[in-house]
């Protein structure tokens, strides 16, 4: 595992802090090269591939999307997460030549986020109907819920109610219940 991480770091990968499995960020141009290195190190299962839309993440200053590859090696019983960052109009190379499981996973990412994969043989929607405009897991895709109305004209708008529960806000009272890890970080 150390050899593999070293090779990836030589390619310009950046190490993210992670407690059990290595979590690396790689530049978009080097993605296929690094995936090939990982595959040569006997990581024979591309277990998962998904995207994260960071557009509403508090204090996030790099690109909008992250695409995460979750790879597992049966012989070594090890797992590695590789990720790359990209903006909404950027395209990335498909990993379907390396692992067949990328075929369906990349379709899912395309359907949910609109990220395009170059070289994918059949990049069409997976879950949502053809008539649906947009990509549902984008943070700006509306939820389509209606406000709760009362007789006296008051109403509760669900999205503004929920906004107080997001990380960017201090919460309803500014109180942080606090996980142990969370409290520790604050003290540090």
């Amino acid at each position: 595992m150390e050899d593999l991480v070293k090779k990836l770091l030589e390619l310009g990968a950046e190490h993210l802090k992670a407690d059990d499995a290595p979590n690396l960020v790689i530049d978009k141009s080097n993605i296929i090269k690094s995936l090939e290195i990982i595959k040569d190190a006997d990581f024979n299962i591309l277990s998962d591939l998904f995207a994260i839309d960071y557009s509403q993440y508090p204090e996030h200053d790099s690109k909008r999307f992250a695409v995460v590859y979750n790879l597992y090696s049966v012989s070594k019983n090890e797992r590695i997460f590789l990720r790359l960052e990209l903006d909404s109009d950027e395209k990335i190379a498909s990993a379907s030549d390396l692992w067949k499981s990328a075929l369906v996973l990349e379709r899912e990412v395309f359907d949910m986020f609109g990220i395009r994969f170059l070289g994918h043989p059949n990049l069409v929607k997976l879950h949502t109907p053809d008539e649906l405009e947009g990509h549902p897991l984008l943070k700006d895709f509306p939820l389509g819920e209606s406000p709760t109305l009362f007789n006296d004209g008051r109403f509760i708008d669900p999205s503004s109610f929920r906004a107080s529960l997001k990380g960017a806000s201090k919460g309803l009272t500014g109180y942080k219940g606090g996980a142990r890890r969370g409290m520790k970080r604050v003290r540090e």
Partner: peptide, 26 residues
Amino acid sequence: GYFLVSDGGSMPYRVKVRVPSLINLQ
């Protein structure tokens, strides 16, 4: 497996479920 991303709020920022049936079916 559930891949959870927390943004420090009380709702998960991103939930990704690695479901076995979908991938096995391929």
